[in-house]
Each structure stands twice: as structure tokens, then as C-alpha cells.
Write a protein that binds this DNA or RNA. Structure first.
Lengths: 121, 121
DNA sequence: TATATGATTGAATAATTGCTCAAATGTTTG
DNA sequence: CAAACATTTGAGCAATTATTCAATCATATA
């Protein structure tokens, strides 16, 4: 019931056939939203750095805070988001919590994007 | 001169050797920022849909507005950002402006992320 | 030339977000 | 048990942002 035709442009400007064809070829809305959530979580320097660091070494919250000169709280907040997206896992050892990457794909996605940005100049 | 040691955690908690090692292995700051900009621009449903649509067909602003039931203005604003990132190119034909994808990598990045989100359940 | 139309732009607004600060948890150890 | 410490959490705040609205630009055509 959301598919009602809303008139946005004059009929002459819109190529309805093309529009319909493209509409059918797009992924479903829920997949698009999941995709954007994946990209969004990598779209912040702090979080991306955390992911890159954890891809190399298992680190505790203090290590990450020191590494990026940020407060422990700020790191912890971001780790919570990364946990929510199941991108990182953790291991408790006494008071300390060691985080590491928990995703096989994210590394490849970042690597591909890295190739991309290197070619931009 | 920004490397000054800021004390964040007690010395015992931080594994300075590991931190130093990871710090050296990370990409330079400017590349990280470029990476986040790439991910950020894909991290919005409207923009991602535009990119996905333009990857399939060359479309005018009205086509896109109709396709996603959004105002021409909203689409145009987003297209401006995509132009700024050189992800789309355009072709003027009279009053109309036809947009299409202008990047070889973005498709692969989205495709890889798509595989990722499909495996999440 | 005047009008209509596709597109762009700038200002305004509401929503989101990343960080700080303060307080709370959980665990170790004196 | 109390103090210290690593971490988490929630509230608050400043900055960013996606959309709308109104105005403007550019082109076609009547």
C-alpha cells in the first residue's frame, strides 16, 4: 500500500519502463538497510581504526584508548556498536576485556575499499 | 608533535609493545579518512539506492525521484555528494541531466558487502 | 519574449551521532 | 571488607546530516 503512484515529475520526463526495470533489479529494502548499516559502521574514523587494529592484534580497551589517544569511555561506546554488529568478539580475563575481530568479510571489504582510495589521488 | 604521551590508562594495563606494533601497521591517517568517506557515502539508504540504480541504468533526476518516491531536490542534493566523490558522472541533454555510475570499484565493494549481509540471518 | 519544465542551490529544521562526564559494575588484591 | 582498577553505561551536548521548502538557473518551446 505504499506503492501508490506519487506524482513527482511530469509524465514526459520519467521513463517509466526503465524505472520499472531498475526497480525490479534492486535488492529488497531490508537488504539495502543491512548494507547501509554495514557501511555506516565503517564510516567513522574511530570505529574503522578499531576494526583495523583488531584485525591485526587482540587488544584490550586500554590498549585501544592509548593507541588512538581517546578516552576509555569513547572506545567502549564504539566497541558496543561493533559488538552489536557482530564484528568483534571479546574474551574476559579478570578485569580486562580483550577484543578481536569476529568477521571474515569485513577485512576483504576494507581491503577492496583501500585499493579504491589509493587510486584516487 | 602530536605524539606526546597522554596518560589514559595505568601503565600495567597497556601492552605498549603490542600497541606500538599495531600503530606501525595501520594505514596513514589520510587514507583512513578517505576510507571512512567512501564508506560513509554508501552508508545512507537513499545514496546507496541511487548508486545501485545507476550501476544498472543511466537515469535522469526525475527517474530517480520517481523510483524512490523522493523529491527531486532530495535526489539532487545526494547526487551532488556523489558527484563530489566522483562516483557518478552526468550527461546533459537539453533540460535533462542523465546520471550514471563513474567508478569501477564501488560495484565490487557493494557486492562483497552484499555477500556479507546475506550471510548474517 | 514569455512560459513551462528539469535541475540545482541555500536556508531551515528535525533527527542522528560521537564524545565527555559522572556514576555504576565487576574483579582483583591489600 | 575496602580500595584500586578495567570496563560499561546513561545523560547531556555539540556537531553533522537528510530532507523540505522556496528561490534560482538553464533550456526548450509556444
Amino acid at each position: 500500500m505504499n506503492k501508490a503512484k506519487i506524482k513527482i515529475c511530469s509524465e514526459t520526463a520519467v521513463d517509466h519502463q526503465k524505472v520499472r526495470k531498475v526497480a525490479q533489479s534492486l535488492p529488497p529494502e531490508n537488504e539495502i538497510v543491512s548494507l547501509t548499516e554495514t557501511f555506516k559502521i565503517l564510516g567513522d574514523p574511530t570505529r574503522l581504526k578499531i576494526v583495523l587494529a583488531l584485525a591485526r592484534e587482540e587488544l584490550c580497551v586500554c590498549d585501544l584508548a592509548t593507541l588512538f589517544s581517546l578516552s576509555v569511555s569513547a572506545i567502549s561506546h564504539q566497541l558496543r556498536l561493533l559488538r552489536g554488529m557482530k564484528l568483534v568478539k571479546y574474551r574476559k580475563v579478570g578485569k580486562m576485556v580483550y577484543y578481536s575481530l569476529d568477521d571474515e568479510h569485513i577485512g576483504g571489504i576494507i581491503q577492496l575499499a583501500h585499493i579504491h582510495v589509493r587510486e584516487i589521488p
